[in-house]
C-alpha cells in the first residue's frame, strides 16, 4: 500500500485552454462549454463536480477526443491532438486513455474476460495479437483479479450485478496501460455500498500505480476524496483550483 498522503507530481499531462463546445438542439444553440481552462497533473485524481446536465460528460468527451471542441486547444504531451486526423486520434485514444462510463457499456455478446481484452484486440492486428495471446490473456485475468472478479471471468454482463459490471469496465479501461482514465460518473448508477466499493477500487488503483484519473461526478463524497476538485458551472471551471484534502481515508 502506497502512501495516501503522497504529493501529486507537478508534471502537467493534459492542458485545456479556452475550450468551447455548443450543440444545436432544435433550432436553438446550446452552449455547453464556454471556455474551459483545466490542467491535469500526472498521478492525480482530479474530480470535476457539477450538477447533472451542466456539461460534465461533454467535457470528458472533448478531453478524450471523442468529440471535437468548437474552439480552444487541448494539449497532450505538448501537442494539440485535435488537429490530428480521426484515425490517429482513435489510435492514440486506444493507447493512452481508458474510459469508464456510468452505464458500464460492456459488450453484451462477450464474457467478462473478452470484454477486458477488447482494447488489446483493437490495438493489435490478428497476427500480433495471436503472437502474444498468452501474455494478453494473463494480463486481462490479472486485471480481473485486481478488481475482485477473478472467479467470474467467463460470465456475460447480464450474469453480473451492476457493481461487478463496473469493475469489469474498470479492468477493461486499464488493459492497454493508459496514461490516464476518464471516468464519467463511475458510481452514478450504483447503490451506496457498491458505489463505495468501486470508489475504493479506483482510489486503490491510483495509490498503487499512480494512475492519473479525471473523474466527472455530481457525487460530493467522491470529490471529497480526490486530490483536487474543480467545479463546472455555466460551462466554465470556477472556484475549483483549490487543493483538495490530501489526507484520504481508505478502507481497503
Amino acid at each position: 500500500m502506497s502512501d495516501p498522503t503522497r504529493e501529486v507530481g507537478p508534471k502537467i499531462l493534459l492542458r485545456a485552454r479556452g475550450v468551447e463546445k455548443s450543440y444545436k438542439v432544435g433550432g436553438a444553440k446550446l452552449e455547453v462549454l464556454r471556455g474551459v481552462d483545466l490542467d491535469v497533473r500526472e498521478g492525480e485524481i482530479l474530480a470535476v463536480l457539477g450538477k447533472s446536465g451542466c456539461g460534465k460528460s461533454t467535457l470528458l468527451h472533448v478531453l478524450g477526443w471523442l468529440d471535437r471542441a468548437d474552439r480552444g486547444e487541448i494539449v497532450y504531451d505538448g501537442r494539440d491532438h485535435a488537429k490530428l486526423p480521426a484515425s490517429e486520434r482513435a489510435h492514440l485514444r486506444n493507447r493512452t486513455m481508458g474510459f469508464v462510463f456510468q452505464f458500464y457499456h460492456l459488450l453484451g455478446e462477450l464474457t467478462a474476460l473478452e470484454n477486458v481484452l477488447v482494447p488489446a484486440m483493437i490495438r493489435y492486428r490478428p497476427g500480433t495479437f495471436g503472437a502474444q495471446k498468452r501474455e494478453l490473456h494473463d494480463r486481462a485475468k490479472a486485471l480481473l483479479a485486481v478488481v475482485g472478479l477473478g472467479h467470474r471471468m467467463g460470465h456475460r454482463p447480464t450474469q453480473l450485478s451492476g457493481g461487478e459490471r463496473q469493475r469489469v469496465a474498470i479492468a477493461r479501461s486499464l488493459m492497454n496501460q493508459p496514461r490516464f482514465l476518464l471516468c464519467d460518473e463511475p458510481t452514478g448508477n450504483l447503490d451506496g455500498r457498491t458505489a463505495e466499493d468501486v470508489r475504493t477500487l479506483l482510489w486503490d488503483l491510483n495509490a498503487r500505480s499512480e494512475q492519473t484519473m479525471i473523474v466527472v461526478t455530481h457525487d460530493a463524497k467522491m470529490a471529497d476524496q480526490a486530490h483536487r476538485t474543480v467545479h463546472l458551472v455555466d460551462g466554465r471551471i470556477c472556484g475549483g483550483e483549490e487543493e483538495a484534502p490530501l489526507v484520504q481515508e481508505l478502507e481497503l
Binding site: R93, N94, F99, F101, L107, P119
Partner: peptide, 16 residues
Amino acid sequence: TRDIGVLGALGATRGG
C-alpha cells in the same frame, strides 16, 4: 449503436 460508441471510445477507427 451503443457498442459502436463504446468501440469508438476504446479506440476503434471508422474503417474498423
